[in-house]
Structures are given as C-alpha cells and as structure tokens.
C-alpha cells in the first residue's frame, strides 16, 4: 500500500477499518475481529514453525507474584514502566469514605493498599520461579502467549500499555542458550520476511531508567545482550521493533536458583514476538484489508 509514514494517519486508518476500537486512555484500545484473526493466525504460524522444538506450552495470567519484580531488579531498572495492583482492605467506614471521595472528585488512592500481585511487565517473568532447581539434561524450553503491561501511554498505535507477546524462554548451559538465540534470530527474520515484511535485525537496548540506566544500556549494547527485529510501521527512520531477543546471562539463574546438571547457575535467554506490532506491520505493509494481501502472504497465514 502507501509508502508514506504517518503515525496519526496509520492510527486513524486502523480505526476507520474497524481494526482497533478507541478508548478514552492512550495505549489501551480494543481489537476488532479481523485484527484478532490476523494475530491468531500469525501466532499459529509461529507454533507450526516451532512445533518440532519440544517446547512446553504455558499460559500465565496478566498478573504475577509481586516478589518477582522485587527480586529481579525490575524496580531498579524500570521503575517508570511497572504497574502494581492496589486494592481495598478497609471496612465499612473506609468504604463510605472511598465512595464519597470518588463521587466528589477527590483523590482516593491512599484508601487502597498494595496487593501481592503486579501486572506482568515482561512475558518471560512468570516462568523463572517455576523452573527453580536443577534443570533436566539439555535444559528447558518453554513457550507462552502472555499479556504484558508497560506504563507508557502514547498516541502511537504501536506503543501500547497492554499487549500480547508470543514468548520463548530457553534455560541451560551458556553455549546451548546462545546457540538457540542465534538460531532463532535467523529464523525470526526469515519468518517475518516470508510475510513480505522488510525486517532487519539490530543490536538494541532496553529503556532503562535514569543515569544508572544509561550505564546498564551501554553495557547491554557493548555485550550485545539484546537484539531486535525491526520493521518500518510509523516511520522509515525509526522502524518498530516487532521481535526482541534478550540474553540474561546468569541473572535469573542466580536470583531464582536455576542450575544446570553440573551445578552451575543456568543461563537464560528469551525471545518474544510483539503480536499486535507484527499485525500492525502487516497492515502497514500490505494494506488494511487482509483479503487484498498478496497470495503468498495469505497462504502462509491461512494455509
């Protein structure tokens, strides 16, 4: 379709074609049936592509144990992105006060207290505590489709507060984990290109907070711990990351006590397809009506 790039125009087009449903707050729009169909078809294609890999398939809810983000330095690295669930613990009197304040437009958040859960900030996080202990020979491979929360409201349709990630997590010996990551990097790029997307891989950094974050990002880049696969969606100069690879070295193995059979701390890596972003890249590249997409692309998604 069009080769012009315009974030607002693309958002308006998604809305006009019923692909997304606007809501009052940014980055929390609904998804229409056609959008969801494409998303599920792409996710199914990933499943077909990886069906011989022997991954265990899990699904976790959008909330996770709060101690996970406390123990993994998430609140040190990304305090600006975290979302914590607060709820009401009071009695009648406090409930009446809450009601009065809400209906009179007064601040009321101090009448809620922190709960045991937070919104899941990254698709891989819930899995690490579940694989604590000694891994089987050869390590573990787990795949999930999880909802993820990031506190970054934005008018850009590709920057959502809540979205789905098709995730794979590999845990094992360093060489095995790196080889797996490198194999998937090639596989991910060729998968996206097979759908007609102009996908290119690049070294990347996470959006760490503040001055400490500058140092963490510089280190991450120097050690090539993060890669992204990028496709132009809103801009040619700043393409959108639709797939992300993180090599955590022994970080999660250390925090959660995950070990390989020789007793060493396991290394972990993950990769995730940002499903909504892949779908938006398809709409941007091939047009808002999937019935008019190239046959080769349709055959891949609707085999």
């Amino acid at each position: 379709m069009t080769t012009e790039f315009d974030a607002q125009g693309f958002y308006d087009g998604l809305v006009a074609h019923g692909l997304i449903v606007p809501v009052r707050v940014q980055g929390a729009f609904g998804r229409g049936a056609v959008f969801e169909d494409v998303l599920e078809r792409f996710n199914a294609l990933v499943s077909r592509l990886s069906s011989g890999d022997g991954a265990d398939h899990y699904t976790f809810p959008p909330v996770i144990d709060r101690t996970i983000i406390e123990r993994t330095d998430y609140l040190d690295s990304f305090p600006h992105l975290a979302g914590t669930v607060f709820s009401f613990f009071g009695k009648e009197k406090q409930a009446r006060e809450l009601s009065e304040r809400v209906h009179s437009g007064q601040p009321w958040s101090d009448l809620q207290g922190i709960t045991d859960v937070c919104l899941n900030p990254a698709a891989c996080y819930p899995v690490y505590p579940t694989i604590a202990g000694t891994l089987p020979a050869g390590g573990r491979l787990i795949t999930m489709t999880n909802w993820v929360y990031r506190h970054e409201p934005s008018p850009e349709p590709t920057r959502m507060q809540s979205f789905r990630v098709r995730e794979f997590v590999r845990a094992g010996a360093p060489d095995d984990v790196l080889a797996w990551r490198d194999q998937w990097l090639e596989r991910g790029v060729s998968l996206l290109r097979s759908l007609g997307l102009p996908a290119t891989p690049d070294v990347a950094t996470d959006p760490f907070f503040g001055r400490a974050g500058k140092m963490l990002a510089a280190s991450q880049k120097e050690l090539k711990l993060k890669f992204e696969v990028l496709v132009p969606v809103l801009s040619l100069e700043s393409p959108t990351a639709v797939c992300s690879f993180n090599y955590h070295q022994e970080h999660f193995g250390h925090v959660f006590g995950i070990h390989t059979q020789d007793g060493r701390e396991a290394h972990t890596a993950c990769l995730g397809f940002g499903l909504e972003r892949v779908v938006m890249a398809l709409f941007k590249t091939h047009g808002f009506d999937p019935r008019a997409w190239p046959t080769q692309v349709r055959d891949r998604l609707w085999p």
């Binding site: 400490a212 510089a218 280190s219």
Partner: peptide
Amino acid sequence: MLALEGEFDIEFPDHMLKR
C-alpha cells in the same frame, strides 16, 4: 558507580557511564 559519586563528591558525565 553511585557509591564512587557519593564518596568523592563527583558526577560521572554520560560519556563515562560505560563498562
């Protein structure tokens, strides 16, 4: 890095925030 800044009353400029 943060402890060095506190101890020596300095602030590392951005270009020095590297490994």
